[in-house]
Amino acid sequence: MKAIQAVTTILAVATLFTIPLLLDNYFVTWLFTLAAIYSIFTISWGFLERYSGRPSLGHASALGIPAYLAAISYNLGFGILTPALVSLLVIFLLYYLLSLKLGKKEFIFATFVISILLWVAAPRLVLGYGDTMVGGEEGFFLPHVPLKTIYLLSFLTLFITAMIYDFLARTGLGIKMGAVRDDELAAKALGVKISRMKFFASLLSTLTAVAAGYLYSFQFSHVSPEIFSVELSVFPLIVSIGGLSAPRMTFLSFALLFAARALNALAPQFHLVFYAALLILFPIFGRRLYAQG
């Protein structure tokens, strides 16, 4: 059974990776790359939910902070590696401390509030060079990176992330982390070090979120305040309706993004109606997921 799941993960990512190569179409490659980045982002959210029982309702902030810091650093003439380390530290500390201090309900609200505050604050961030102003509502530009490079990097990151995410569940550490998610008090009674488990869950989630943030911003060569939007924050929550395993999260991220594109062809932003319907039905599926856990 375990071997089947591992093979499924490899096959899922390999199949999705091959399609753009076979079709050799710019838009298809662009769309699959974006879907791969969304999948990494969703799995990053999954590390928090599956391994520490702290689902975030503001995970867009973990995507936006590295993207914004990279863009600001680039516009100021500095490199883009230092902001990665800074954002890694900031997001990790944020998630780790919040998961230590707050319960599940409070964590959800706290992450939501943080992402909204960043969404409101981001348009007010403006940099000036003499007469030129950059930032604000329009956001910041980044250097262009060829799509093929982003495509390869995205799928490579997705593959590594998905493998770690699923294989972790089979290790002793993963089982302890899962126990913390299911019942923190019972896990503590059995001698599991709660803070250590939350440390690893926060670290893994942050690492993948920073990678997704960089890939996302470089795919568009641009970052705007919309990266902190509620729409992005609820995306992993909606995807989790289908299950918390890596192949399911990957396939559903792709499916949801493609469905959103198709619905937008009917009317602008029509996908939000679909998202809203799924959010309303979320508690039904959420209970099923919790029962599985």
Binding site: K105, F270, L272, V273, A276, I280, F282
Partner: peptide, 29 residues
């Protein structure tokens, strides 16, 4: 909806958020 589907604060908040988005989009369309 909140009585039938949501059973705790988080579930009800998510339903209310989805309902708010649905209404707003309905108005927009």
């Amino acid at each position: 909806l909140t009585q039938k589907i949501g059973r705790e604060t988080v579930g009800r908040t998510i339903i209310a958020l989805g309902y708010g988005i649905a209404l707003e989009e309905a108005f927009r369309l």
